[in-house]
C-alpha cells in the first residue's frame, strides 16, 4: 500500500471570467522514504494539486470536482482527519515558496515552531519551546536559543526557510510537501536547503513531494518524476526514465529549455514557442498539440496514457500521455523514447 495516493483529482475555480479547470484528472502515489518531484511550468496546476487535497485552497472560489486522496488508506481529501486527529501538521508537513511572507510577522520564530507541538502533541508551552530550539538546531541554525526569540523580519530568506522546515517537521510527519521551496532563494542557499532536506529525509525516513519547475532540483532530489501540463500529468516515471528516456514531447521541450554545464560549444537554449492553453476552455485533445513539433491529426482527440516498456526489470513504471505511443503510429519523432 502506498503511503500517499491521489487519484483522478479534478479541481476548478470560479472566477469572474468563467470557470478555470486548473487540475484535470491527476493521479500519483508516494511511497515511504521516497521523493516525488512534480514538474511543470507556472500555472500548470502543480501547486493546486497538493494544496487542494490538503485543503489549503480557498473554497469557494475553489472546488474539488471529484477525485480522492488517501494516506495509509485513510481518506484525507481536503485536509481531513485520521482517527479524529488532524492530518495537516501532524502527518503532512508543508513548506512554501516564499519564506519571507509565509511566517506570521508578529510572532516569534520559536512560538511559531512550538505551535504545532502544543496543538498536536499536547506539549506544555515551555517543553514545546525547548523542542523548538532543538528543531532549529537540527536545521543548522546557529545560536538557536537566541534565534527562537526573534521575529521573522530579523531572519534572512534562507534562515526563514530553515525555520519553516523546522516547523513543518516539528511533529515528525510522514510526508513533507515542499512547494517550490527554493524558488525565492539565492542559488547558494538553494543548495544548502536541498542538502538539508535530503539529510533530514535520511534521518527521519519521511516521504517528500517536491514541487518545482527547476529540472536541476529534480535531478538532484527526486526518485520519481511527474511532469504536468495544463492540469494533467503528461509523463510519469523514474528520474532516469524521464530524463534519459523522455517519452513525451513536452518533457523534451522542457529539457531543451534547461541550461546545462556540459559545454559542448555554444549551445543555445531552445524555448518552447507559444503559451499553454487557456484553462477557461481547455482543449478537448492534447493540451500541448498547439506547441508540439510532432502534432498529428489524432491529437485533436484526448490522448490515452501509454505504458513504456522499462529498460530494466526493477525500474519504475514509465507512462506517457501521447498519441505517438499508439501501436499504429509510425512517425519517427526524434528524441521521443518509444520503449525497447
Amino acid at each position: 500500500m502506498a503511503l500517499l495516493e491521489v487519484s483522478d483529482l479534478h479541481v476548478e475555480f470560479d472566477t469572474y471570467g468563467g470557470t478555470v479547470h486548473a487540475v484535470r484528472g491527476v493521479d500519483f502515489r508516494l511511497d515511504e522514504g521516497q521523493t516525488l518531484a512534480i514538474v511543470g511550468e507556472s500555472g500548470c496546476g502543480k501547486s493546486v494539486t497538493v494544496q487542494s487535497f490538503t485543503g489549503l485552497i480557498p473554497m469557494p472560489p475553489g472546488r474539488i470536482v471529484r477525485g480522492g486522496a488517501t494516506l495509509r488508506g485513510h481518506d484525507i481529501l481536503g485536509g481531513g482527519r485520521i482517527d479524529g486527529k488532524e492530518v495537516r501538521g501532524r502527518e503532512i508537513g508543508m513548506i512554501f515558496q516564499d519564506p519571507m511572507t509565509s511566517l506570521n510577522p508578529t510572532m516569534t520564530i520559536g512560538d511559531q515552531i512550538a505551535e504545532p507541538l502544543q496543538v498536536h502533541a499536547g506539549m506544555k508551552r515551555r517543553t514545546a519551546h525547548a523542542r523548538a530550539v532543538e528543531l532549529l538546531e537540527m536545521t543548522r541554525i546557529p545560536e538557536p536559543a537566541k534565534r527562537a526569540e526573534q521575529y521573522p523580519f530579523e531572519f534572512s530568506g534562507g534562515m526563514l526557510q530553515r525555520a519553516m522546515i523546522a516547523m513543518a517537521l516539528s511533529c515528525e510527519p510522514s510526508v513533507l510537501i515542499a512547494d517550490e521551496p527554493t524558488t525565492a532563494l539565492d542559488v547558494t542557499i538553494q543548495a544548502q536547503i536541498l542538502d538539508l532536506m535530503v539529510d533530514l529525509q535520511r534521518e527521519n525516513g519521511m516521504a517528500i513531494a517536491l514541487i518545482t519547475h527547476d529540472l536541476g532540483v529534480v535531478a538532484r532530489m527526486a526518485d520519481e518524476v511527474l511532469v504536468m501540463y495544463a492540469g494533467q500529468v503528461v509523463e510519469r516515471g523514474s528520474v532516469d526514465d524521464v530524463f534519459y528516456r523522455s517519452a513525451h514531447p513536452y518533457t523534451l521541450g522542457l529539457k531543451a529549455a534547461m541550461p546545462t554545464n556540459q559545454s559542448e560549444g555554444e549551445q543555445d537554449l531552445q524555448p518552447i514557442d507559444g503559451s499553454p492553453p487557456d484553462l477557461f476552455a481547455p482543449p478537448e485533445g492534447c493540451g500541448y498539440a498547439a506547441r508540439c513539433p510532432f502534432a498529428m491529426e489524432a491529437c485533436q482527440g484526448p490522448p490515452p496514457v501509454y505504458g513504456i516498456r522499462a529498460a530494466a526489470a526493477d525500474a519504475y513504471d514509465h507512462e506517457s500521455r501521447c498519441w505517438l505511443h499508439h501501436e499504429d503510429c509510425d512517425i519517427a519523432a526524434e528524441g521521443v523514447h518509444k520503449g525497447e
Binding site: T54, L56, G93, S102, N104, P116
Partner: peptide
C-alpha cells in the same frame, strides 16, 4: 489571503 495564514492552516491549527 496572506501566505502566513496558509502556513497556519498547513500546520493543522
Amino acid at each position: 489571503n496572506a501566505d502566513f495564514l496558509r502556513t497556519a492552516r498547513a500546520k493543522g491549527l
